[in-house]
């Protein structure tokens, strides 16, 4: 089989078998690209995953891009990314097209009202989990609080807040490094 097609299909399988994004993807990715294909090593996958987590973008897509890049350069990485998003496109489009035809039913509205509570809890858990690794001192606590207040009380764009927080990080850590030196 053509290697690019093979990359696309392999990553389409990874995307289609992953429920719940980034973290859930790792075991399936390891099985497909390390054990079955031998395209990359176990250590590579862990490195790619670690880096993908600490860069912007979708973690699963970033990881796929790195693996694809290792296999076949730029074109390999693009095929891997297209593969991993393909099942989402098909499945979500079907659901989105289908759902509007029965979303007016009472029991469906009741069901979604219940689901919203669950989503709230999932978000709270994500905040706790991220918070534990991100809010490690008073500066990060302050940045988090400031961002929260600004985005609730004003119309300022999240992009601006993200950029400003990155700058705060560089300025604060930079000064600390300079003091050490």
């Amino acid at each position: 089989m053509n290697i690019y097609l093979d990359i696309f299909l392999t990553f389409a399988r990874v995307g289609g078998l992953t429920f719940g994004g980034g973290y859930a993807m790792l075991p399936i990715l390891q099985k497909e690209v390390v054990e079955k294909r031998g395209w990359v090593s176990e250590a590579d996958v862990m490195d790619y995953y670690a880096i993908s987590q600490c860069m912007p973008g979708i973690i699963a897509v970033n990881t796929s891009l790195f693996v694809g890049h290792k296999i076949k350069g730029a074109r390999g990485s693009i095929m891997a990314a297209l593969g991993v998003v393909f099942p989402s496109l098909v499945i979500i489009m079907l659901i989105a097209a289908f759902i509007s035809s029965f979303s007016h039913l009472n029991w469906v509205q009741n069901a979604f009202a219940g689901i919203r509570v669950c989503v709230l809890v999932l978000i709270v858990n994500a905040i706790i989990k991220l918070g534990k690794s991100a809010l490690i001192d008073w500066v990060t606590g302050l940045v988090c609080a400031a961002v929260l207040l600004l985005s609730v009380l004003t119309d300022v764009s999240p992009v601006l807040l993200v950029v400003a927080s990155g700058l705060v990080g560089v300025l604060y850590k930079g000064r600390k490094e300079a003091k050490k030196a």
Partner: peptide, 29 residues
């Protein structure tokens, strides 16, 4: 170290942003 410093700030911002979005979900749920 610069990349680490940037993400030191970014991750904190991310938590604040998600919390803010969580508040609007709280409102409707």
């Amino acid at each position: 170290p610069i990349v680490q410093a940037v993400f030191y700030g970014l991750r904190a911002a991310s938590v604040g942003l998600i919390a803010a979005a969580g508040l609007s979900v709280l409102q409707i749920s």
